[in-house]
């Protein structure tokens, strides 16, 4: 379970990584073509914003959650006794899974709606954006699963944070 999920999230992260390289190449080519030949790549702004960026942000989200890379403050937490640390983490994981499920559900509905109307945006060209919308429920949803798995690992006594103190406490 752990290995399969890690593989999946890692794969999605790589797709996000591909997005970053393609975005860089696209922007660079657009500038070069614009400066030298007055022939920009139409749609660069829209595709960068709605596809590359959404991929870069959403696809690695599950891995970020799973690997404890989300940004949090552990100033107080570090001084908690072990039982309180475990309780805090459990509450955190459940709440995380909860709100991410809300986000998944609602952005999922949006994706369905966007698909039904064939959502496009109007830049200098019309760009279809509904496929990009699907990356939101995917990212939020898998991140919610990651939070649930972390809760399970916590209950099994496995390490769930990058902090050594917590690892020994848990």
């Amino acid at each position: 379970m752990d290995r399969a999920f890690r593989k999946l999230t890692h794969g999605l992260m790589l797709v996000g990584g591909l997005g970053i390289i393609v975005m860089m190449i696209n922007i660079t080519l657009d500038v070069v073509l614009k400066v030298f030949w007055n022939a920009p790549i139409q749609g660069t702004v829209e595709i960068s914003s709605y596809y590359y960026m959404v991929a870069i942000v959403m696809l690695p989200m599950a891995l970020v959650e799973y690997d404890d890379e989300q940004i949090s403050v552990d100033l107080l937490f570090n001084h908690f006794p072990a039982w309180l640390k475990r309780t805090s983490l459990l509450i955190t994981f459940i709440a995380t899974a909860g709100i991410l499920s809300v986000m998944t559900w609602r952005t999922g509905l949006d994706a369905v709606r966007a698909f039904k109307v064939g959502e496009v945006v109007m830049g200098s060209r019309e760009i279809i954006v509904w496929p990009a919308r699907c990356m939101l429920p995917l990212g939020f949803g898998l991140a919610a699963v990651a939070a649930v798995l972390r809760a399970v690992m916590l209950l099994q006594g496995k390490p769930v944070t990058k902090l050594h103190e917590t690892d020994s406490a848990a």
Binding site: K34, N38, P40, V45, M122, G123, S124
Partner: peptide
């Protein structure tokens, strides 16, 4: 011709291309 024009999109961008200008989104 060849000028970079910031357009509101849609018909405006088509007009820019029609006259040989370059519509820019920003």
């Amino acid at each position: 011709k060849g000028k970079r024009l910031r357009m509101a999109g849609g018909a405006w961008s088509r007009f820019a291309e029609y006259v040989g200008a370059v519509p820019v989104s920003m």
